[in-house]
């Protein structure tokens, strides 16, 4: 077990200096060290997508990455996308389309959806469904989630 290492992360625009041991995942760095619990732990194995965050512009599974590997990176979590009173268009669309039930997969779905739209690969509903399939929803809000993303993609919430 090696000793803690100093890392720098920019999280939601805020510079953070942290001392974390090398075996701490980025997910637990966010949750346990920064108390940013909006990013969820659903499997800790890269199988459910609940821990999706946007790292240097790309959506990644924060449970499959160690905190120390992201030294110097810019991370956006659900808390950084929008807050009550100042919601991101996709957050607003999730409310309008009731694109969640328990809410546990929701931050990952939203981060994934925001990054997906920037990637520009998904043009049709079928493509969005396919490229969002790494984000599981056990409540079965699937069609509402895709509806919300399509609405923002098509500019209904711009």
């Amino acid at each position: 077990m090696s000793s803690p290492q100093e890392i720098k992360l920019t999280v939601n625009g805020k510079a953070e200096r942290l001392s974390v041991r090398p075996w701490v995942s980025l997910l637990d760095t966010l949750r346990h060290h920064l108390h940013l619990n909006g990013t969820k732990k659903g499997c800790d194995h890269g199988q459910c997508g609940a821990c999706t965050v946007i790292c240097d512009g790309e959506r990644i599974l924060s449970c499959l990455t160690l905190g120390v590997m992201k030294d110097g990176s810019e991370i956006t979590t659900i808390e950084g996308l929008g807050q009550p009173g100042n919601l991101h268009p996709l957050q607003e669309a999730f409310l309008e389309h009731d694109a969640y039930q328990c809410g546990y997969c929701t931050p990952g779905q939203i981060c994934s959806g925001v990054a997906l739209m920037k990637e520009g690969h998904a043009n049709t509903r079928e493509e969005v469904k396919e490229l969002m399939s790494g984000n599981l929803c056990r409540c079965g809000a699937n069609t509402n989630i895709i509806d919300a993303i399509m609405a923002v993609k098509d500019g209904a919430h711009e």
């Binding site: 940013l36 619990n37 909006g38 990013t39 979590t77 659900i78 808390e79 996308l81 929008g82 807050q83 009550p84 919601l87 957050q91 999730f94 409310l95 969640y100 809410g103 929701t106 931050p107 939203i110």
Partner: peptide
């Protein structure tokens, strides 16, 4: 509780 759920609160 919707706003709390979509903002990570």
């Amino acid at each position: 509780v919707g706003v709390q759920k979509v903002t990570g609160q």
